[in-house]
Amino acid sequence: MKAFINAISYYLPEKVLDNHQISLEHPEWAADKISQKTGIYKRHIAAHDESAGDMAEKAGKKLLAETKVEASGIDFLLYCTQSPDFFLPTTACILQAKLSLPTSCGALDFNLGCSGYIYGLALSKSLIVSGIAKKVLLLTSETYTKFINPKDKSNKTIFGDAASASLITSEIGPYELGNFRLGTDGTGAENLIVRFGAIRHKTDKGTDIFDSTGEFVKNEEYLFMNGQAIFSFTSITVPKLVNDVLLCNNLVKDEIDYFLFHQANKYMLEFIRKKIKVPLEKFIYYLEDIGNTVSNTIPIALKEECTNKKKGNILIAGFGVGYSWGGCILHSM
């Protein structure tokens, strides 16, 4: 049995943060320099009282409305987030009720970041091919901006909030899911982390740490990214992942029509693109107006840049926090 992505919808919160505003807060960074390096002009920011669960609900409702699929027909809900509404219950259970999905629907959260959409597709395909589910609703939603310290200009320029909803079934749809390769290296856990606030450091208070030049480095209550380590990890892991995905799908690089990678930031993606020698016209970018939306970048770029536009073999790949990575081939019809 085959599995297909039948539809994708997404939701962006209303509030926008553009480079001009960042430049006003951090005058040492000019607005045009931010866009030149990151490829990002603006990002959407979840409202103070808007949770990732709220955004996932909006994306899910949008998908049901746009596809006219009956909520009663969904028999599995997968929800990817690193910003759970509560420690417990699982947000997916709350979303089952809010989306009026049947009580016979399985539902679970899984905690992954930039690799999350690939894992979600792999799990969805497994559920369908094994006969456990017929119609899977895969939701991704992230509010990283709530993890970012106001003094942390680097992360502020990169991340934006968003939610996505994808319908995966065995009925023929725009994208057939090919074979997957997944990977994990937990030795990189320290390099992208929000250390305090969960169980291990539940009541610990963080302090702002600055380097010798007065630049903000980290505060353990907030998102910390060791940019250098992440860059090294990506530059070594992604080319290998691309090769592995090609091999397990019996394809060679020239048979790939488009490459769609997690939209981390333009500078790093350009570095990878040149390294694996992919021409610009085969390499998909969609981050100018939304930034790095973590597990949402791939579904949003698929919807905006590929659906009804790009046919053939699309190699998609996600990589980041964990470290965790994954890739697969979509046969776009």
Binding site: G227, Q228, F231, S232, T234, S235, I236, Y267, M268, F271, K275
Partner: peptide, 8 residues
């Protein structure tokens, strides 16, 4: 970062 990564 890019220089360190390419050398690595």
């Amino acid at each position: 970062m890019a220089i360190i990564a390419i050398i690595e």
